[in-house]
Amino acid sequence: KFNKERVIAIGEIMRLPNLNSLQVVAFINSLRDDPSQSANLLAEAKKLNDAQAP
């Protein structure tokens, strides 16, 4: 279950337009470290993406 959620979360994070490459890598590394947190990490990535919108 967590592996599928992690793959989906990674794909979504990679498509967030307002994150820089270091932020994307940090979120992906966090997902690798704890796949059970996929939903929480994706939500945090989306919040950061929205906050950094031009």
Rank of each mutant, 00 (worst) to 15 (best):
Val24Lys: 13
Pro35Leu: 06
Ile8Gly: 03
Asp50Lys: 06
Asp34Leu: 05
Asn18Arg: 02
Asn3Thr: 08
Gln52Cys: 14
Ala43Trp: 07
Arg32Cys: 15
Lys46Cys: 08
Pro17Arg: 07
Gln52Ile: 04
Leu42Ala: 04
Phe27Asn: 00
Asn29Arg: 11
Ala9His: 03
Asn29His: 10
Leu22Ala: 12
Ala26Thr: 08
Gln37Glu: 08
Leu42Trp: 03
Gly11Ala: 09
Glu12Ser: 06
Glu5Leu: 11
Pro35Ile: 07
Asn18Gln: 02
Asp50Cys: 11
Ala9Cys: 05
Ser38Gln: 05
Arg32Thr: 14
Ser38Pro: 04
Lys46Ala: 04
Leu22Ile: 07
Ser21Asn: 10
Ala26Phe: 13
Ala53Trp: 05
Phe2Asn: 15
Ala39His: 09
Asn20Asp: 08
Lys1Cys: 15
Ala53Val: 07
Leu22Thr: 12
Ser30His: 08
Asn29Leu: 14
Asp34Ile: 04
Glu12Arg: 11
Ser21Met: 12
Met14Asp: 02
Phe2Ile: 15
Phe2Lys: 15
Arg15Met: 08
Ser21Tyr: 13
Arg32Gln: 14
Ile13His: 00
Ser36Ile: 07
Ser38Asn: 14
Ser21Trp: 14
Asp33Ala: 09
Ser30Trp: 11
Leu42Val: 11
Ile8Thr: 03
Pro54Asn: 10
Ala51Tyr: 12
Val7Ala: 14
Pro17Ser: 07
Lys1Gln: 15
Arg6Ile: 15
Asn49Gly: 01
Glu44Ser: 06
Ile8Phe: 06
Ile28Gly: 01
Val24Pro: 00
Leu42Arg: 04
Gln52Leu: 06
Pro35Asp: 08
Glu5His: 06
Gln23Pro: 00
Arg6Ala: 15
Arg32Asn: 15
Asn20Gln: 07
Ser36Tyr: 09
Pro54Met: 12
Val25Tyr: 09
Ile28Arg: 01
Leu42Glu: 02
Ala43Glu: 08
Ala53Leu: 06
Gln23Ser: 02
Ala51Asn: 10
Ala9Phe: 14
Pro54Tyr: 07
Ile28Phe: 05
Asn3Arg: 02
Asn20Thr: 13
Ser36Phe: 09
Ala9Asn: 03
Ala9Glu: 03
Lys46Leu: 07
Lys46Glu: 03
Pro35Ala: 14
Ala53Tyr: 07
Ala9Ile: 12
Arg32Trp: 14
Asn49Pro: 01
Ser38Val: 14
Asn29Thr: 13
Asn20Trp: 05
Asn3Met: 04
Val7Arg: 14
Leu22Arg: 12
Glu5Met: 12
Ser21Gly: 09
Val24Cys: 10
Leu31Val: 09
Ser36Met: 08
Lys47Leu: 08
Asn40Gln: 11
Leu19Trp: 00
Glu5Gly: 06
Ala51Phe: 09
Ala9Gln: 03
Met14Gln: 06
Asn18Ile: 01
Ala26Asp: 10
Leu19Glu: 00
Lys46Tyr: 09
Ala26Met: 14
Arg32Lys: 14
Asp50His: 08
Asn18Lys: 01
Ala53His: 09
Ala39Lys: 12
Leu22Glu: 10
Lys1Asp: 15
Phe27Val: 03
Lys47Ser: 10
Asn18Cys: 06
Ser38Asp: 04
Asn49Tyr: 00
Phe2Leu: 15
Glu44Tyr: 10
Ala43Val: 07
Val25Leu: 12
Phe2Val: 15
Asn49Thr: 01
Val24Asn: 02
Asp50Ile: 08
Ile8Met: 13
Phe27Ala: 02
Val7Ser: 10
Asn3Asp: 15
Asp33Leu: 11
Lys47Glu: 06
Lys47Met: 11
Ile13Glu: 00
Glu12Tyr: 12
Leu48Cys: 03
Ser36Lys: 07
Leu22Lys: 12
Lys4Trp: 14
Asn40Asp: 09
Arg15Asp: 04
Ser38Trp: 15
Ala43Pro: 01
Asn3Ile: 11
Ala45Thr: 00
Asn40Ile: 09
Gln52Ala: 04
Asn29Ile: 14
Ile13Ala: 01
Gln23Phe: 02
Leu22Asp: 12
Ile8Tyr: 07
Lys1Gly: 15
Lys46Thr: 05
Ser36Pro: 04
Glu12Trp: 06
Gln37Met: 09
Asn3Glu: 15
Lys46Pro: 00
Glu5Val: 04
Gln23Ala: 02
Arg6Asp: 15
Glu5Pro: 02
Leu48Ser: 02
Glu5Thr: 04
Met14Lys: 11
Asn18Ser: 04
Ala45Lys: 00
Arg32Leu: 14
Ala9Arg: 02
Asn29Cys: 15
Asn40Gly: 09
Val25Trp: 13
Gln37Arg: 13
Leu22Gln: 13
Lys46Val: 07
Gln52Glu: 03
Ala39Leu: 13
Ile28Thr: 03
Asn29Ser: 13
Ile13Asp: 00
Val24His: 02
Gln23Thr: 03
Gln52Asp: 02
Ser30Asp: 09
Ile10Ala: 05
Gln52Ser: 04
Val7Phe: 13
Pro54Ser: 09
Val7Asn: 10
Gln23Lys: 00
Ile28Cys: 09
Arg6Thr: 15
Ile8Trp: 05
Leu42Tyr: 04
Lys1Met: 13
Ile10Tyr: 04
Ser36Thr: 13
Leu19Pro: 00
Asp50Gln: 08
Pro17Glu: 07
Lys46Phe: 07
Ala45Met: 03
Arg15Ala: 10
Leu22Val: 10
Ile13Gly: 00
Met14Cys: 15
Leu16Val: 00
Lys46Ser: 05
Lys1Tyr: 10
Lys1His: 14
Val24Gln: 05
Glu44Gly: 05
Asn3His: 14
Arg6Cys: 15
Gln23Asp: 03
Pro54Asp: 12
Ala51Arg: 11
Asn29Gly: 07
Pro54Trp: 05
Met14Glu: 06
Pro35Trp: 13
Leu31Phe: 04
Arg6Gly: 15
Arg15Leu: 13
Glu5Ala: 08
Leu19Phe: 01
Lys4Met: 04
Val7Gln: 14
Arg15Ile: 06
Leu16Thr: 01
Lys4Gly: 13
Ser30Pro: 01
Asn18Leu: 02
Ala39Met: 14
Ala26Leu: 06
Leu16Glu: 00
Leu31Thr: 02
Leu16Cys: 03
Asn20Pro: 01
Ile13Gln: 01
Asn40Met: 11
Asn49Arg: 00
Met14Thr: 05
Ala9Pro: 01
Phe27Tyr: 06
Leu41Arg: 05
Glu12Gly: 07
Arg32Tyr: 14
Ser38Phe: 14
Glu12Ile: 14
Arg15Cys: 14
Asn29Ala: 12
Ala45Gln: 00
Ala39Gln: 11
Asn20Glu: 04
Val24Ile: 12
Ile8His: 05
Leu16Phe: 04
Gln52Asn: 05
Val24Thr: 06
Asp33Gly: 07
Leu16Gln: 03
Leu22Phe: 11
Val25Asp: 08
Gly11Val: 05
Leu22Ser: 12
Ile13Lys: 00
Leu42Lys: 03
Gln23Leu: 04
Ala39Trp: 13
Ala26Gln: 12
Ile8Gln: 08
Gly11Lys: 11
Leu31Ser: 02
Asp33Cys: 12
Asn18Trp: 12
Ser30Gln: 14
Phe27Gly: 01
Asp33Ser: 10
Pro54Arg: 08
Ser21Ala: 12
Asn3Ser: 04
Ala45Trp: 02
Lys47Asp: 06
Ala53Gly: 11
Arg15Phe: 05
Ala26Trp: 09
Ser21Glu: 07
Ala9Met: 07
Asp33Asn: 09
Ala39Ser: 10
Val25Gly: 10
Ile13Leu: 07
Leu19Thr: 00
Asp33Thr: 11
Ala43Phe: 06
Asn40Ala: 12
Ser21Phe: 13
Ser21Gln: 08
Asp34Lys: 05
Asp33Arg: 07
Asp50Pro: 00
Ser36Ala: 12
Gln37Thr: 09
Lys46Trp: 05
Val25Asn: 10
Lys1Phe: 06
Ser38Lys: 04
Ile8Val: 07
Leu19Lys: 00
Asn40Tyr: 10
Ile10Ser: 04
Ala26Cys: 14
Leu16His: 02
Val24Ala: 04
Leu48His: 02
Ala39Pro: 05
Gln37Val: 06
Val25Glu: 09
